[in-house]
């Protein structure tokens, strides 16, 4: 098995399929032509830039540049998640939690994978560390985003019950424990579902990529299993950190529920 590189002509042919999408939009008057053009152009430009940046960073093989790129990935991901939050606690602490929890969870899982499991030389080899960190980060962020949303909506809808418990002398963690447990379940559900259905519904992207690149399916599957273990671990860490952090943000040190801190709808 060999790896078959794509040239510009191959890509142009594949892009022809987008024209079908455009035709659908015009035919059904969906008005999505513009969005379609912008989205596909963004995709091409972003991937080209990332590929170039990765090429440079792989060449440099420097821990500093690897770390900087990982931070950049975190910032970009956090921004995406943030723009999708319905309501959140106003102020910089939410951002710190929303970006910090997945970043730390991703960092821990990636270091663990690099140092203990895979063992590349050097251990920070960007070729291994950055793609793995990206997968950890993406999943941890998705989980964090779900938890933050579930915590604010839960606190809002359960306000009367939460305050009843607080009035009876409960601590903030006791009063919010139902909401917290439900939010954690919500945050963990995607990875649990992903593990249960992986390979049956669709081949995971990374495994597909490795197979296309000429790796034996069994070897590719082994990598995928490791990645899913790591993803489960880092998502769990991020989800718990986001949930506990949310309790602190939604309440104050006098154990009061502080829905007044939420951004206006």
């Amino acid at each position: 098995m060999t790896y078959l590189p794509l040239d510009l002509l191959d890509l142009s042919l594949a892009a022809l399929l987008l024209i079908a999408n455009g035709a659908i939009s015009i035919w059904f008057r969906l008005g999505l032509e513009r969005t379609l053009a912008v989205s596909s152009l963004r995709m091409v430009v972003q991937l080209a830039l990332v590929a170039l940046a990765l090429k440079v960073i792989f060449g440099l093989d420097s821990p500093l540049w690897t770390a900087l790129f990982a931070l950049f990935m975190t910032a970009a991901a956090a921004y995406e998640v943030f723009s999708r939050q319905e309501r959140r606690v106003a102020g910089p602490l939410t951002l710190a939690l929303g970006a910090g929890a997945p970043f730390l969870a991703g960092l821990i899982a990636t270091m663990f994978a690099a140092v203990v499991v895979i063992g590349p030389d050097p251990w920070y080899a960007p070729r291994y560390v950055l793609p793995i960190f990206g997968m950890m980060l993406g999943n941890a962020l998705a989980g964090t985003s779900l938890v933050l949303n579930a915590m604010t909506t839960g606190a809002e809808t359960e306000r009367v019950a939460i305050e009843a418990r607080i009035a009876l002398g409960a601590t903030r963690f006791e009063a919010l424990d139902t909401v917290l447990r439900r939010a954690l379940t919500t945050g963990l559900m995607p990875i649990l579902t992903a593990m249960a259905t992986t390979g049956i519904v669709a081949l995971p992207g990374m495994m597909t990529g490795q197979i296309l690149a000429g790796i034996e399916p069994v070897e590719a599957a082994k990598y995928q299993v490791m990645i899913l273990f790591l993803v489960a671990g880092s998502t769990g860490l991020a989800v718990v950190a986001a949930g506990l952090g949310s309790v602190l943000l939604l309440t104050d040190e006098r154990h009061r529920l502080r829905l007044d801190r939420l951004t206006p709808r």
């Binding site: 009367v160 019950a161 009035a167």
Partner: peptide, 11 residues
């Protein structure tokens, strides 16, 4: 010092 709300809460 116990507050009993007009609308009771149940969890």
């Amino acid at each position: 010092v116990r507050y009993a709300a007009a609308e009771p809460g149940w969890w």
